[in-house]
């Protein structure tokens, strides 16, 4: 790993100011993607700005939203009575990221900012219609994710919290890679009123995406049977040593049905 300068921000404002002043900076949240990436020399920031002292962890219910601080760990989301009660699908998603030790350090803000095409949280944000709060604005999930490892975040912008509207029904099912636990395909379905959203992670070549054909079918009747015959074109999907694009296309259909079945169970 190349050397870097370590700085710890005491506030969000402090982090933003450091981002503006420091040489080639990167924000450090849980570090569970960034540190391995730096070891491989795929990233070599000159400065790391640690957010762990900036007061960004915590979970609260605010009206019809569950609001989760950016530095809240996966283990904290999984164990939260508030999340378990209001959006159990989100608690279960967090409980199956990586492994227990990873969940003790990895954070929701870090995962969302990284926008790994096989990460779990982006699917939850898209399907639940979450809003990403940052140091300068509020960004709807739909506009936040901008393709593989890309987001709408500016260079001097820090995610502070994420607000999830509470759905009527929701579930997330993933088909994990047995070694990395990342999703080969993960599908998050959510129903709120008459609106149904289906978000797919792990499969799309541009990262997380909404499956509108499935959404239309499920809006008529929220049942796994509604998905029979709904096609998932393989053209825009990833193919790699773990699964071809055709295989992923098939899996999207299978996993989406399981997710709907879990949501109505």
């Amino acid at each position: 790993m190349y050397p870097f300068k370590y700085q710890k921000a005491a506030t969000v404002r402090g982090a933003v100011s450091l981002l503006g002043k420091a040489e080639d900076p990167k924000l450090l949240a849980g570090g569970h993607t960034l540190i391995p990436t730096m070891k491989q020399r795929l990233a070599s920031p000159k400065t790391l700005i640690d957010l762990s002292g900036a007061g960004l962890s915590g979970i609260e219910q605010k009206g019809r939203n569950i609001v989760i601080g950016a530095m809240t760990t996966h283990a904290e989301v999984a164990a939260s009575a508030i999340v378990q009660q209001a959006i159990p699908a989100l608690a279960r998603l967090a409980a199956h990221i990586g492994d227990p030790h990873v969940r003790h350090r990895g954070t929701i803000g870090g995962s969302v900012a990284n926008n790994d095409p096989a990460a779990d949280y982006p699917a939850a944000l898209m399907a639940l219609g979450a809003t990403v709060h940052t140091s300068k604005r509020k960004i709807p999930a739909e506009e936040f994710f901008a393709g593989m490892f890309a987001t709408a975040l500016d260079e001097d912008e820090v995610i502070t919290k994420i607000a999830f509207p509470v759905p009527a029904k929701a579930a997330y099912v993933k088909f994990p890679n047995p070694a990395s636990r990342y999703a080969i395909v993960g599908v998050f379905v959510a129903k709120k009123g008459s609106q149904v959203k289906v978000a797919v992670t792990g499969a799309g070549s541009g990262g997380v995406f909404r499956h509108t054909a499935m959404e239309e079918a499920l809006a008529k009747r929220f049942n796994p049977k509604s998905l029979e015959g709904v096609a998932t074109p393989a053209a825009d999907l990833n193919g790699d040593i773990h699964a071809s694009a055709d295989y992923r296309a098939h899996l999207v259909g299978v996993i989406a049905k399981r997710a709907v079945a879990a949501a109505i169970a």
Binding site: G31, H32, I35, P36, A75, H101, R105
Partner: peptide, 9 residues
Amino acid sequence: KAVKSCTTF
């Protein structure tokens, strides 16, 4: 809490 000390500075 159990953590991976190879992935923590």
